[in-house]
Design a protein around this nucleic acid. Structure first.
Lengths: 226, 226
DNA sequence: CCAAAAGTGTTATGTGTACACCCATGA
DNA sequence: TCATGGGTGTACACATAACACTTTTGG
């Protein structure tokens, strides 16, 4: 046994937190207070502490920087480790993807920005790439999982659920066929036996909550994507 | 600016290297020479050096420990960062998944072991979990990508390609339907206009090479999995 | 009355699946 | 002639896509 020791690096977590507001897919970003990239927008993130797991660190950042104590959905996205991605030191970052319902208000210095407004550029570090990966993951998983429900506040109508798909995918879906597809997929949604209060024109809709199924068989296919 | 400094941890890469040999899905493992887990089997891995990217580190380990200089396929799998996963120090590990053709021989101290022989237990650290994640990723990606070709040495027959799917998925596929499915998927395979030499009974088969397509539309569905 | 959103019915089209059958080779 | 693997044809079940139509609300 020698006195050799491995190189050490700093490890962070960065969060892609998505929700749908006013028919726009929006992401939570914060303005950086210090260099590098002072004044630029960046994804919420933080260093991983010695005795916490990566997921625990992600939940801590979610609570501290976004005020979210119960993320509807949280999954690991990918790890980014290019040597020059942070000019200060060697930092590798494990990104997490969180999908939350519309409810959260702007927290601290963070705010919601439409993904399309960022247009693939403008975030600090390699966060444009991380955001793009997160959005693509979310789009893909709507197809074969029940993840769209994570964007909805319960109870929800099938119209609200459909607008989630349409917003995230950026396409229009056929209304009657969407309804049949959702209802014929076991465990995707469960009717709670109530209707919306009439109030804004149109027939009151039945209300649903998320079902127990995680994976969809067969998948909900998106039309040739936009 | 204060003198605060982030916690630092060691970062490693671990590799799940899969291939198909004799109709078995096998993984490359090495016997550990030092504690902890001395004598146990573990996935090939190594520390990430200061100035190399994670993927570069994975390629270096692939070359050094497995003698593979041109992996057919290499992708990031997931990052594992539980605080107690390595008793010596805080180590987080980014796992990579590599799929290679049958050709490679056993290298150095590493050897091929059927995944089913490990039976979900027996590897050092949390490598059972990493292996399970890698196998599940490979199984899933056969469905919607052209990844099965990465297991084949070119040129290959449709029968060989079919046995890849059957071995990885652990199911039997309908022979005529598999053929039509593969040939009707644009860019999956390309005929090279030659046949196998007759020699072992049965009609000589046409030979193919991998096509340019990465994603399959529509997907190759696996029967209810085994 | 019309507009808007929910919800139902029907039909064409395409894809997956099952199975019968033929072809080319070795033993 | 049989066994083995390659390769073709065909019919049925099922899912999607397109569109016409009805229901229930507000203006």
């Amino acid at each position: 046994m020698t006195s050799w020791a491995p190189d050490v690096v700093a490890v962070t977590v960065d969060l892609v937190i998505l929700t749908v507001r006013d028919d726009h897919l929006v992401v939570l970003v914060a303005e950086r207070q210090w260099d590098p990239f002072r004044g630029s927008l960046a994804l919420p993130g933080g260093f991983v502490e010695q005795s916490e797991s990566l997921e625990y660190a992600a939940r801590r950042v979610l609570a501290q920087k976004a005020g979210l104590n119960d993320p509807g959905h949280l999954e690991q996205l990918r790890t980014y480790g290019e040597p020059e991605r942070d000019s200060r030191m060697r930092v590798i970052s494990t990104a997490y993807l969180s999908l939350v319902p519309q409810l959260p208000e702007v927290a601290n210095l963070a705010r919601w920005v439409p993904v399309r407004a960022l247009g693939g550029g403008g975030l600090a570090f390699d966060h444009d790439r991380i955001l793009a990966d997160g959005v693509e993951r979310a789009r893909a998983k709507l197809e074969y999982t029940s993840l769209a429900g994570a964007f909805c506040q319960e109870p929800f109508t099938l119209g609200e659920l459909r607008r989630i798909y349409e917003t995230v995918w950026g396409v229009a879906l056929n209304v009657p066929n969407f309804r049949r597809k959702v209802l014929s997929t076991p465990g995707l949604v469960e009717a709670i036996g109530q209707r919306t209060e009439p109030g804004s024109g149109g027939r009151p809709a039945q209300l649903y909550r998320r079902g127990g199924a995680g994976l969809l068989h067969p998948a909900m296919l998106r039309p040739e994507s936009a």
